[in-house]
Design a protein around this nucleic acid. Structure first.
Lengths: 111, 111
DNA sequence: ATTATATACCTAATCGTATTAGGTAACATA
DNA sequence: TATGTTACCTAATACGATTAGGTATATAAT
């Protein structure tokens, strides 16, 4: 749907932004992002899980297994303080880039 | 300055956008993009040249050597028709992504 | 009862690309 | 003459997205 580079640049900020409103598990993130993007972003699990593992390895998110009543298990991710500042940094970069493209392409300003 | 992923997603659209207004040589592109971004994007030559070669290999741009009066040579790049449609596609992707982030982050709409 | 679909997690191998770290050469300026 | 700027280039590395798998349980359909 979107080109690969744009996927790469948007995945982490999107994950961190969704986690800002509370803990989520991987599969849920895929559904939420699909919904938020009006179906334009359809992440595969094989794309998402390695990203989540990397974010956890780098300390931006924490994980916690939840045992459901029906016996199934889910791994819930939540944002760390480091993750919050990472999001702030990426958001700031994105906004600057959006302003640049808005000017170049004569769009209405992004902020 | 910007994070790596955002650099990756923006480099090609920026090059193609600058070439839309006429032919440019590599070194010149670096200067123009630095100026357009108010110094926030400082591309290295080692980053740019491989990208230009890839864009040419893929038919998005064409190159032509110019011999200057002082003996120096420059390689000028110009946009092909394929490059124009590639830019249109990437621009469309970018605008959709900008709209998504504008909503998520409660910014003014990007377009 | 069995099959299909959805949920929910995971890894290994491949491939593409940004970055690092170089190199060449001519011109301009101090 | 030495430094900085212009102007091009490649090879090696490192990182991450994608492809192509895999495991297991719950639910819905036939």
């Amino acid at each position: 749907m979107f080109n690969k580079e744009l996927i790469g640049a948007s995945t982490v900020p999107l994950i961190l932004t969704v986690l800002l409103s509370g803990e989520n598990y991987g599969y849920e993130l895929i559904k939420k992002v699909k919904m938020l993007s009006n179906g334009k972003l359809e992440w595969s699990e094989a794309m998402l899980y390695p990203v989540l593992h990397r974010l956890e390895r780098d300390g931006f998110i924490h994980s916690k297994w939840h045992q459901l009543e029906n016996g199934r298990k889910r791994k819930y991710y939540s944002l760390s303080d480091l993750g919050r500042s990472e999001l702030a940094a990426k958001k700031s970069d994105w906004i600057e880039m959006m302003q640049l493209f808005s000017e170049l392409w004569n769009l209405k300003p992004a902020v």
